[in-house]
Amino acid sequence: MSILVIAEHDNEELKPSTLNVVTAAKEFGEAIDILVMGENCQKVSKQAASIQNINKVYCMSDAQLKNHLAEPLTAGTMQIVKGDSYKYIMSPASTFGKNLLPRISALLDVQQISDVTEVVSASSFKRPVYGGQAIATVESNDDVKVITVRVTAFDAAEAEGGQAQVTEVAFNPTEDFGSTFVRLEVAQSERPELTGAARVVSGGRALGSKENFKMIEDLADKLGAAIGASRAAVDAGYVPNDYQVGQTGKVVAPELYIAVGISGAIQHLAGMKDSKTIVAINKDEDAPIFQIADYGLVGDLFDILPELTEKL
C-alpha cells in the first residue's frame, strides 16, 4: 500500500516537476517510490534517491525507453505496478504526464484525476475546470488513484539528503509498439524554465512582430525572468509554442508576472492568475487583464517597455 511517482526527466537530469509531485504525494502519509524510466538513466535515479523521504527508486533503463514514448513507458509502468499494490500513481500534469497517465489509468480500469491542485483527503481532491473558472472537488472511489499534479500548486520537495535504495529493473516487453521517434526540436535558452520561474515577462499580440518581441526579452533579461506569451503571439510566430501560457499551454505562478500587450482572455488567465504579483501594461484601460492585475499601467508598450527596462 504505497505511492508510485513516475519521474519526469531527459535521461540527464530529473525535472524539478518531480519534486512538486513528491510534495503532493507526501500528503497521503504513505511510503513513496519513484520510477525512473529511460536509457542510461542511472544518474537521474541517483538524483531521485536523494530526494528526502523516498522509500525506494526503480531504475528501468532500456533503449526502447530512451525517447519516453507513451507506449513503452506504459508497458514499463504496468510491469512495476503489477508486482506491487500501489494505491496512488502520480506524475506532473506536464505534457509528459498528460501523455502517459491516462493510458495507465485506462489499463487499470480507473478514472484518472487530472491537474490536482489540492489534496483534500486520501480520496478527495480539488481540480480546476472550465479553464479555471470553477474549482471542482471530486471523490474517487477507485482502488487505485491515478493522479496528475498541477506543479505550481505544490512546493518543491527537498532534493538533497535522502538515501533511498536504487533497484535496477529490466524492461521486459518486446512487442512492436507501433510508434517511432523521429526528432526533437528543443528551444535552447539560458533563461529560467518557464513553469518554475520566479519572474515571468509575457508578451501578446500587440508586440506585432518577432523583432519587436525582443523588447520583451530585454526586460526579461534585466529581471532574470523567463519569457511567456499569449496564444495570439505564438500563433503569429513571434515565439515558439512552448512559451504559451494558459488553459491549453503552461501554467505558471511566479512571484512576479508582467503581462505586456495581452488582453486577458479567460484562457490566458487560466495559466497565470495564481501568480503572486501581476503587472499589466496595456493601452486599453478597459482590458480585462486589469481586473486581476495588482498594478496596471495604461499606455503604449512601445514607450513603456524601453523606459522600464532602462530604469530597472
Binding site: V110, Y295, L297
Partner: peptide, 29 residues
C-alpha cells in the same frame, strides 16, 4: 468513479490599482 462533491468559485483576485507612470510602477514593485 469520481463523485462530484461540489463546484466552487476560484479564489477571487481583486483588481489592484492603476499607476501613473514607469517610476511609480518601479516604486510599487
Amino acid at each position: 468513479r469520481l463523485k462530484l462533491i461540489s463546484v466552487d468559485e476560484p479564489p477571487k483576485r481583486e483588481a489592484g490599482e492603476k499607476v501613473e507612470n514607469v517610476d511609480a510602477l518601479i516604486d510599487k514593485l
